[in-house]
Design a protein around this nucleic acid. Structure first.
Lengths: 156, 156
DNA sequence: TCCGATTTTGCAAACGATTTGCAATGAAAC
DNA sequence: GTTTCATTGCAAATCGTTTGCAAAATCGGA
C-alpha cells in the first residue's frame, strides 16, 4: 500500500516517452495533450476531469478536449479509469509496459487516496471463469473508509 | 454464485413485512412506495431507476418520486445500491436482518447478471484497517465479462 | 519552406442521470 | 372532520459527459 497524497509516482515516466508513445500510434502531439500528459505525470493519484481542467493553465485546454483526450489515452492504455462512486471518472497514468492494475482506499470524507498494490480478486477471476463460463473477466474494486486524519476531526 | 436472471429472490420477503418496516420507522406507506417495493420484491437482480419507472404501471409514479424513494429506502437499509459502471445506479432489495452484501458478475454485452455470494475482499478489510489506520472500511467490487450466451453470438 | 490532407480544437448545444423548488395532494393523529 | 406534516407530481435546474461543426493546428510530401 502506498500513500499517494503528494509522493512521487511509483513508476515515473519521462514526458518524452509519453509523447513518443503518442507518435508511435501516429497520434498528433499537440499542446493540450502535452500539457495533459505533463500534468498526469506529476500526479500520483487519479484525477477527475474537472480537477485536470482546473489544474491546467487557463486557456490551455477545454473540457471537451480533455474528455476526448482521456478517451484516446484510455484506448491507447496510457491512462486507466477509476470510479470512486461520486459520479466523476478519474484517470491515472499507466506506466509503460505495465497494466497499471491496482486498487485504492479512499477516505469518504476528505477523499485522500491510498494506493493498494495487491489485487485480491485476481486469483478469483479464474475460478469465476470456470464456474460461470464467462470469458475475459475483469473487475472493479475500490475500498472506502475514514482516514486517520479525519477520525480526529469529528465535526463536519 | 446464483444466476439471477428470472429466478426467485434468494431471500424473498413478504410485501407486508416491507411496508411494516416503513411503518416501524414512521414513514408513510403510500401507493407509489407500495408499488415500488412490490416491484423490487419480485426482482432478483439490481434494477436501474429507468427500469423501475418503465416497469411500474403508467401514472403510478414519477421519476423524481422514485429517486426520492430510493434515497429513503437506502437510508433505511431496505435497498442496496450497485454500480455497474454504465452511469446508472441500480438497486436491490435487502432481506430484513441481513446486510445484503454480495457482488455481481455482469456480461459486458447483454448485461445478464450473476450473483456472487462469496465476498473475497472482506477478510482483507481488517488487514487494510491495520496497515492504513482507516476506520469503517467498506468496498465496492463488481466483475465483468462475456457470458457464455454472448460468446456464441459473435456479431454485434 | 510551403501545401494539402487529415486531425484536433474550441465553442455551444445536446444529453442522460439525478436533484430541487414549489404548490397540490395524501396520510395519519386529534 | 380537521389539522398537520410528509409525500407527490411537475417543471426547471444541475452535473458529468458527449457531439456537431467550423476554425486552427499538425504532419508528410512537393
Amino acid at each position: 500500500m502506498t500513500a499517494s497524497g503528494h509522493s512521487p509516482k511509483r513508476s515515473a515516466e519521462k514526458l518524452a516517452d509519453l509523447t513518443e508513445r503518442l507518435r508511435r500510434q501516429s497520434r498528433k502531439v499537440t499542446g493540450p495533450r502535452q500539457a495533459l500528459l505533463d500534468l498526469l505525470r506529476q500526479q500520483s493519484h487519479p484525477l477527475a476531469i474537472r480537477e485536470i481542467f482546473a489544474a491546467l493553465p487557463a486557456g490551455i485546454s477545454d473540457l471537451a478536449t480533455i474528455y476526448r483526450s482521456m478517451h484516446l489515452l484510455e484506448q491507447m492504455r496510457m491512462v486507466k479509469r477509476f470510479d470512486f462512486g461520486d459520479g466523476a471518472a478519474r484517470f491515472e497514468l499507466v506506466p509503460e509496459g505495465e497494466d497499471g492494475h491496482h486498487h485504492h482506499l479512499v477516505c469518504t470524507r476528505c477523499s485522500v487516496v491510498l494506493e493498494i498494490e495487491e489485487c485480491f480478486p485476481e486469483h478469483v477471476e479464474r475460478s469465476l471463469a470456470q464456474t460461470s463460463g464467462f470469458q475475459g473477466i475483469t473487475h472493479r474494486l475500490e475500498f472506502f473508509g475514514l482516514c486517520p486524519e479525519c477520525q480526529t476531526t469529528k465535526s463536519i
